[in-house]
Design a protein around this nucleic acid. Structure first.
Length: 694
DNA sequence: GAGCACTGC
């Protein structure tokens, strides 16, 4: 039995069984009949101490507590306050609470500060990249992204200033969360007084409890009363969300776009007022659906008056995204067609109906080819529940699933595949190495990545000269690469730029490569292409980026200038921020900040030093621009968005691959093949490169 | 002449 049972005084928590039995859960809510409970209201009638005391008892007596509760259970905002009141922040200690997203960190911190009546940045503070709103002398409750906490471990591996660490949204299983959980488990062995709280929305508490269950080496000590229990406690708290009625489609549909359109029309014609949120997979689907629904509404006459159809995905301009949040005019129904950005990242108020296609785009990584792919794939039950929950925030809602109940019950997987098992692991491995985890293959992950992916990551790091023959971090390069908060290949490029005397330029390029895209289509595709040509450089996209950056500075960072040149102003502002951070890190690592002025050969050599593994050669006599990768002889093409499209230099290096019907190289630069052996003699020495051919 | 789910340091 994984759970612990406890009766807090006169209050009697309800005991409920897990779906698959065996695990005991506490519930602090009194009613067993209603499917939702409004905690805010309940607090007025019920003694608040029930929830509070249950939490405090568990944290006092258990090394790890797992709290399961949906939206509105108060776990995110209440628990840190309870801990502080109970003295867990006394004596200069700090309570840390992580979130996977920056926006969530900011808003939760602001809410807690407000509830406690304190100034944000004093007793309650937060840290995210580029923003540290804490005061080391005053801050007792600190909210931060999981990634920032990982970075903090590089200076303080045992996280010694924290008395309690709460990891929120653990069910999302982000890369940083999984690494953090593995490391926290290790820390706990060294720091038995440290308390962990794992907060999660779904009921998958059992495997998490199993992961954190530290079995004592000497069983005879088990009975003695030394310290907290090492078997995790599980507490389930019901949330405040309203009931959402679920509807399934009777027969499977082949065309979910058509099914979406007819479902939206039927909700609009038959159901009472309330906004509709539709989950589709990507920009293409969404734009098509917006068009179809708009057409349909116009054809059917009267209904066109009552509907505002809006797309939602991250590629939209800021102004278009803001439309989503403006209140719909009186008597109009808003229909938002969205990617899964609306599943977790953005919360829309006023949604009463959800239409769930059952699909989303997901990233998969193939360690054999070393290629990351974006594919449309079925979502998990956990995602389906999360999507449905978006309909129950303001009042009872309805969710229409475009798949059968039989499919949901019998075929849909319970949980998505953790990001750890779908990603290139080079960054994760180097972070663990920097924290002194030597045996990477034996690391205790919440869910282990494939051995192939681990081996591939070690190979890449070895070829970059970041790991030595014993798979230990090299000095100084390995440690420097680990310190730079970027992909190891980009970090290596920055370090190489020091000796080549072009660090200023390479840092600019790195910053631009780390934002989604600096181009934006404000007027049309033709204008975008023309704008690109104004900055285009014969060497390739990296040098083109430098030209854009120079122009932006010369315009005095003008948003008007960006608009005129089809450049995303918000992306450029982020570039400036990233660039400043990278310069600070470079200085700390003892790299010289130097400009190569117009010596673009130095810049291209630096790119080669980081990305030599992505070198490609144009096929001899190729008429359609076919390239082959040097490493795997994969057939690849220059992406039409590149300034080198149709230019087709003989030798190129790409920054990333996009896989559709073909493999497209994005962000391409031309090189001289002789630089490859210079940059990576060990990597290319055994391969019959035939550099002089062609 | 085609495409970018979403995060994060």
């Amino acid at each position: 039995m994984a759970g612990q049972f406890w009766k807090p005084g006169s209050a009697k928590p309800r005991l409920i069984d897990d779906e698959d039995g065996g695990v005991l859960f506490y519930s602090t809510t009194p009613s067993s009949s209603s499917s939702y409970v409004n905690l805010e209201k309940e607090r007025q009638r019920l003694p608040v101490y029930k929830y509070r005391e249950a939490i405090l008892y568990l944290v006092e007596t258990h090394s790890t507590s797992i709290i399961v509760g949906e939206t509105g259970s108060g776990k995110t905002t209440q628990i840190p306050q309870y801990l502080k009141e109970a003295g867990w922040a006394d004596g200069g200690r700090v309570i840390a609470c992580t979130q996977p997203r920056r926006l969530a960190v900011q808003s939760v911190a602001a809410r807690v500060a407000e509830e406690m009546g304190v100034t944000l940045g004093e007793e309650v503070g937060y840290t995210i990249r580029f923003e540290d709103v804490t005061n080391p002398d005053l801050t007792r409750i600190k909210f931060l992204t999981d990634g920032v906490l990982l970075r903090e471990m590089m200076d303080d591996p045992l996280l010694s200033k924290y008395s309690v660490i709460m990891v929120d949204e653990a069910h999302e299983r982000s890369l940083a969360t999984d690494i953090l959980l593995g490391l926290l488990k290790k820390i706990q062995r060294r720091r038995p007084e440290l308390r962990l709280i794992i907060a999660s929305a779904t009921i998958e508490a059992k495997s998490m409890a199993e992961f954190f269950h530290i079995r004592k080496r000497r069983p005879q000590l088990e009975g003695e009363d030394h310290g907290p229990q090492t078997e995790p406690a599980i507490l389930s708290v019901e949330g405040r969300a309203f009931n959402v009625q679920i509807f399934y489609i009777e027969e499977p549909v082949s065309d979910y776009l058509r099914a979406t359109v007819s479902t939206v029309m039927s909700i609009h014609n038959k159901e009472s007022m309330g906004d509709i949120l539709v989950f589709l997979t990507g920009q293409d689907d969404i734009d098509a659906a917006v068009q179809l629904i708009t057409d349909e509404a116009q054809n059917s006459g009267k209904s066109s008056l009552g509907m505002i159809v809006l797309p939602l995905y991250s590629g939209l301009t800021r102004a278009d995204q803001d439309l989503i949040f403006s209140p719909s005019p009186r008597g109009k129904r808003k229909v938002v067609i969205s990617t899964n950005i609306a599943e977790t990242s953005l919360t829309l108020e006023g949604i009463v109906y959800v239409v769930d296609s059952g699909f989303s785009k997901q990233r998969f990584y193939n360690p054999i080819t070393d290629i990351e792919n974006l594919v449309v794939a079925p979502i998990s039950k956990a995602s389906a529940r999360q999507r449905a929950g978006r309909a129950g925030r303001v009042r009872p809602g309805k969710c229409y699933r475009l798949y059968t109940e039989d499919y949901f019950v019998n075929e849909m997987s319970a949980h998505g595949i953790p990001e750890m098992q779908r990603s290139n692991l080079a960054s994760s491995v180097i972070q663990l190495k920097a924290l002194g985890i030597d045996n990477i293959l034996g690391f205790d992950w919440p869910s282990s990545p494939s051995p192939e992916a681990m081996v591939r990551a070690l190979e890449v790091l070895y070829s970059l000269g970041v790991l030595d023959d014993d798979a230990k971090l090299t000095s100084p390069v390995g440690f420097q690469v680990a310190e730079i908060p970027l992909d190891p290949m980009v970090s290596k490029m920055i370090i190489a730029s020091d000796q080549l005397g072009c660090s200023e330029e390479i840092i600019t390029v790195s910053a631009i490569l780390s934002v989604q895209s600096i181009w934006i289509s404000v007027k049309g595709q033709k204008e975008l292409d023309e704008a690109k040509m104004r900055f285009a450089a014969a060497e390739g996209d990296h040098v083109t980026f430098l030209n854009v950056y120079k122009g932006f500075l010369q315009s005095n960072r003008s948003s008007k200038w960006c608009h005129q040149n089809s450049i995303n102003y918000h992306a450029m502002k982020k570039v400036i921020e990233v660039r400043q951070q990278l310069r600070r890190v470079a200085q700390r690592l003892g790299l010289a900040l130097k400009s190569c002025e117009n010596d673009m050969q130095a810049l291209r050599k630096a790119v080669t030093a980081g990305f030599f593994a992505n070198a490609c050669r144009l096929e001899p006599y190729s008429h359609n621009g076919t390239y082959k990768t040097l490493r795997g002889s994969q057939e690849v093409y220059i992406h039409p968005s590149s300034v080198l499209f149709r230019v087709n230099p003989k030798w190129v290096i790409y920054n990333s691959l996009v896989s559709t019907d073909r493999q497209y190289m994005r962000n391409v630069i031309s090189i001289d093949p002789s630089w490859l052996r210079e940059a990576a003699p060990h990597f290319y020495q055994q391969q019959p490169l035939n550099l002089n051919r062609h």
